[in-house]
Nucleic acid binder design. Structure first.
Lengths: 196, 196
DNA sequence: GGAGTTCTGGACCGAACGTTCCAGAATTGC
DNA sequence: GCAATTCTGGAACGTTCGGTCCAGAACTCC
């Protein structure tokens, strides 16, 4: 044994994640990362190997920390249509805040890197699948409980809702207009209105 | 008068656009641009002022050249639900090709730059509005002609469809799966099925 | 053909990029 | 306190970045 690390790896990872989140992979330099984490270059390379490896770790950190927070109760096994509504509503809410313009790290990454970086694409794809499955589960629960009318294809509806969510994040970047974003969310949810 | 330009400005712009399209603003270097256009640095700076200005020109070039091509008859005044279907179908088709993974320059740009670059955000926003209006017009025509059931809010439906289109482009980057993408497009269009 | 103007190739600029490296400080087990 | 080990700050690496500059070639007009 020898000298122990003088910083918290998780805190550093968290700071790196936030940086990548707001500026993207290419838009974040190693200097930016050392400044934000407080680590020296040596420490950063010792612990995280390099920029790309750190980015992948940051992506996973985002999935395990930020995504659950944004999904809220949608992640729970007995989520229903209310949780889907809350999720989309939360996205809109976020996009309207000052920091919200940075959107979703996974969406940003899908666009910036997924087509040319298989390792990153795997993480992004895994997220998309998991999100779709959560929504599908919620839709099935909603039908089962009679909260919405039966669906021809719950899996398809779920995937379309996920696409809408991703679209919201793109549109919100250029046009963070409350009425527009709420209209989109409401309209996408209209087919799942409560049974009269 | 003096020596005339020895290249075609439009051809150069076109090559630059394709480069930005596939690699993004930050992912494209001036060296890349000179290589792709065949221009020397001097000529490139003489004619296009710099990388950022060239990018904005390329964005506008994309809007005036590529977007109309992808929209097809959807742009026409008497477009209807068929043209909306064809548009979404075309997007899916594109995403499944080798080159299609580059997605849509305007979507890529919205994610990469819109939050921090007002000039670029303006162009992106203008495109989103125009697209939404075309879809809305098509939906209204479809209702008017009795091709689909009346809509509570055609403008809202149109905006949701545009969001779906944008979402498709994000998801397609990480997961260019034919069945998935078609499912999304079909599901988003389900509320506008032909009147029985 | 000569004067005037514009375009072009390529060298050059300082700055920033991601990464490597090493001397020395810090901490451990003994 | 000593030896062994690990971490740390910062200098340094070669490369690439976006942008500037200039000498000279190319062309038009007269």
């Amino acid at each position: 044994m020898a000298r122990p690390r003088q910083f918290d790896t998780d805190e550093a990872l968290d700071a790196a994640m936030r940086l990548f989140w707001s500026a993207g992979f290419r838009g974040t330099s190693v200097d930016d990362l050392t400044a934000a984490t407080g680590l020296s270059r040596s420490s950063l390379y010792n612990v995280f190997s390099g920029k790309h490896a750190l980015f992948v770790r940051a992506l996973e950190h985002y999935r395990s920390l930020v995504v659950p927070e944004k999904m809220g109760e949608l992640a729970s096994d007995d989520a229903s249509i209310g949780e889907v509504r809350a999720y989309l509503g939360g996205l809109v809410e976020d996009l309207l805040t000052e920091d919200g313009r940075q959107g979703c790290l996974l969406v940003n990454t899908a666009v910036e890197l997924a087509a040319e970086d298989d390792e990153v694409a795997d993480v992004v794809r895994a997220h998309q699948h998991l999100l779709a499955e959560s929504v599908e589960k919620a839709l099935r629960n909603a039908v089962k409980r009679g909260e919405i009318a039966p669906l021809a294809d719950p899996a398809a509806s779920a995937r379309a809702l996920v696409a809408t969510a991703h679209g919201l994040m793109v549109i919100g970047k250029a046009d963070p207009d409350e009425q527009l974003l709420r209209t989109i969310a409401d309209s996408a949810l209209a087919p799942f209105s409560p049974v009269a």
